[in-house]
Design a protein around this nucleic acid. Structure first.
Lengths: 233, 233
DNA sequence: CGAATTTATTGATCGAGAGCAAAGACCTAA
DNA sequence: TTAGGTCTTTGCTCTCGATCAATAAATTCG
């Protein structure tokens, strides 16, 4: 479906000249380019809050660089990270007027910020844009559905293996075996529905079974993708 | 957001006369009515497969009556129910050409079946329809995100309480305290990421703490909604 | 209607992952 | 460079929910 969205975006005629800062990065975020192009660039430092839970939902964002986590908190400290947004991902879609989760910068990041009202009013006259928005939303739904299966039915090893393969696939177009982890163990744990200790132990186990190597805590080498895929099932 | 979708639907001008069988039920499924109206009625018996995993995705469905489960299987027997679709819910949205899960009738049910190609080609010229489709998709995303939090971070009691309140809310517009469970314990377990035994035990516990009553296995009386809401948090 | 079969409940035990604690690795700053 | 953080790993114990097993209730069918 990235292909479909990209095609739609490519076929659009753009009325206004592109802001230079965005145009130069256009190639790297095809599916969301039509949306990003309508926005302005904003930057956030590590751990900065982009928006909080239950705030007015006025903007949609597209990641230009860096990583963002989308999370929900439960009364007590418990936190669930719904998804990590990487370069080219869009977030902040809402039908209601208030946000249902918070968004925070995992690493330094640059985002394109687009006014929701502008986006949706343009989409009314521009069916290609409407379709692009639908595709982006749908991609999110797919991700959430896969995440659901992982949280409901997979073991710790399966969860970690799935996570690593997914991150590797999304981080780099080529199948590089060395993967950089932009997020902390706590972030990974809150994404996978585990504790930091279990994430750490599981990584050690996978290293023991030669599926991965851990040259440093934020760098993982996928040594045996098939072993991981077997766990991913 | 049902209000938004309903408003959009109400404002549409419909070119073709409505099939009588669908028109008579129109009032009960406002948000999805615009979609349902374009389809034909099909019926399924209990446990019948509506479509399987990885089949051509040619149709979108709207539930007219009965309940449908959307599920995914993991190599071995493990099953995750992504969602239960009740009257007025739409399912079968895909961007790819193949389905990513299966859909089965939980109870006898009647559905409106709509050709995807027709739906999307009409949406190109009809921005209100496009918006209605986006809203329906987005409602699914919301549901999946709440489900994610439940599976990742909630205890068995919290999961069951959340499920009961959600089902009660969706089953009936008025706050009826008696809720009929259309699905088996196995279905509930596979939705909540638990086992049938744990679901059963948890219901017994909730009965013990006077939060609910269980006159029969498929009928639940919500005796203390606040106690349940406290668990739902 | 009662026998057969499926579905739900309850009990007893087990184990994956949580929780707690301590040690080790890694940053950052002075 | 060292001192003071933070983040990660590892060990030990405990708990919640899974698993195995046996009834009990509900449904189906002859």
């Amino acid at each position: 479906m990235p292909a479909t969205a990209a095609a739609i975006v490519a076929n659009r005629a753009f009325p206004a000249p592109l802001p230079a800062a965005i145009r130069e990065e256009e190639d790297v975020l095809n599916p969301a380019a039509a949306v990003a192009r309508m926005g302005t660039v904003v930057s956030f430092t590590r751990n900065a809050e982009i928006f909080g839970e239950d705030e007015p939902a006025d903007h949609v964002f597209v990641v230009l660089s860096g990583v963002v986590r989308i999370c929900k908190l439960l009364g007590d400290g418990r936190r669930q990270i719904e998804t990590f947004c990487l370069k080219g991902d869009a977030f902040g879609w809402e039908t209601a007027e208030r946000t249902r989760f918070s968004a925070e910068a995992v690493s330094e990041c640059r985002l394109a910020r687009v006014k929701r009202s502008l986006l949706f009013s343009r989409a009314t006259d521009d069916s290609a844009l409407a379709r692009a928005i639908w595709n982006l939303t749908f991609t999110e739904l797919h991700r959430a559905q896969d995440h659901l299966l992982l949280l409901g039915r997979k073991t710790a090893q399966e969860r970690v293996a799935t996570f690593l393969l997914d991150l590797a696939r999304r981080s780099s177009p080529v199948d590089l075996s060395e993967v950089h982890l932009p997020m902390s163990r706590q972030d990974i744990a809150d994404y996978l529905g585990l504790t930091i200790e279990t994430v750490s132990r599981t990584l050690t186990q996978l290293e023991g079974s030669a599926a991965i190597a851990l040259p440093s805590s934020r760098c993982i080498v996928l040594r045996d993708r098939n072993a991981l895929r077997r766990l991913d099932s």
